[in-house]
């Protein structure tokens, strides 16, 4: 029953265009300002790139818009409702890579992708195929039977990206997806993200790579440090 419910939710919401909006969103903890009030709006097949020096609050803004951290001022909404990662709608619509995601030390790379895909209610052989295809897409198919602790730093990043890209979503939130990748892999990632955008995905990306930014960005938001 849960499988059918998840599948129905995924199907119904994956195709829908969502509006993710941050209105004067900021975060303050006591006297420390982690993020100055900022506006961001994202809808349809659009890519917004966040830029700014280290410590300006890019990751904090991404966390707020992924619904894992509540803002102390302003409002972050998804289709008019507050963004909260515990809500079904938020989790179904948004796939986020902000920091290292949870991995299991006793599962191989391909096992992780099959597990993630299946828990979204997409059952049967296609889930196995999708896992293989995703590894192939990111050119890490040869690592399918490795465990997460057996990967290099760059391979870890590609694996983390594959975990986010394999699950159904209509909005991608990525925090510096280019980090630890060589030039070829950055080009590959750019092509993959462009394809996702062409297929209708919205993207909010914090990025330090000028070439990636130029290729992907429909709009750029410069975050000002506090």
């Amino acid at each position: 029953m849960l499988g059918r419910r998840a599948a129905a939710l995924a199907e119904a919401r994956e195709s829908a265009a969502h509006v993710l909006r941050a209105s004067a969103v900021g975060l303050r903890i006591d006297e420390s300002v982690l993020l100055m009030p900022t506006d961001v709006s994202l809808s349809g097949a659009e890519c917004v790139v966040l830029r700014g020096p280290n410590g300006s609050g890019k990751t904090t803004l991404l966390r707020i818009l992924a619904g894992t951290v509540p803002p102390s001022e302003g409002e972050a909404t998804l289709d008019g409702s507050p963004v909260d990662e515990r809500h079904d709608l938020t989790r179904t619509a948004i796939a986020a890579l902000i920091g290292a995601p949870a991995t299991y030390r006793d599962l191989t790379l391909v096992d992780h992708l099959v597990l993630i895909d299946s828990t979204w209610g997409r059952v049967g052989a296609p889930a196995d195929n999708r896992a293989d295809e995703m590894l192939e897409l990111l050119e890490i198919k040869h690592l399918a039977q490795r465990f997460p602790h057996e990967l290099s730093s760059g391979q870890q990043q590609l694996f983390h990206l594959s975990m986010v890209l394999v699950r159904p979503s209509s909005i991608l939130i990525l925090d510096e997806p280019e980090q630890r990748l060589d030039t070829d892999k950055r080009d590959l990632l750019t092509r993959i993200l462009l394809a996702r955008k062409a297929a209708g995905s919205s993207m909010l990306i914090a990025c330090h790579d000028p070439a990636m930014t130029e290729a992907l960005a429909d709009a750029i938001v410069d975050i000002q440090p506090a």
Partner: peptide
Amino acid sequence: PTTSARRVRLRAGGPLMVIARR
């Protein structure tokens, strides 16, 4: 760290079944 039975693969299934298989 786990290194054994790496060739055994997790098979897809329903959300609850795949957790049990895992």
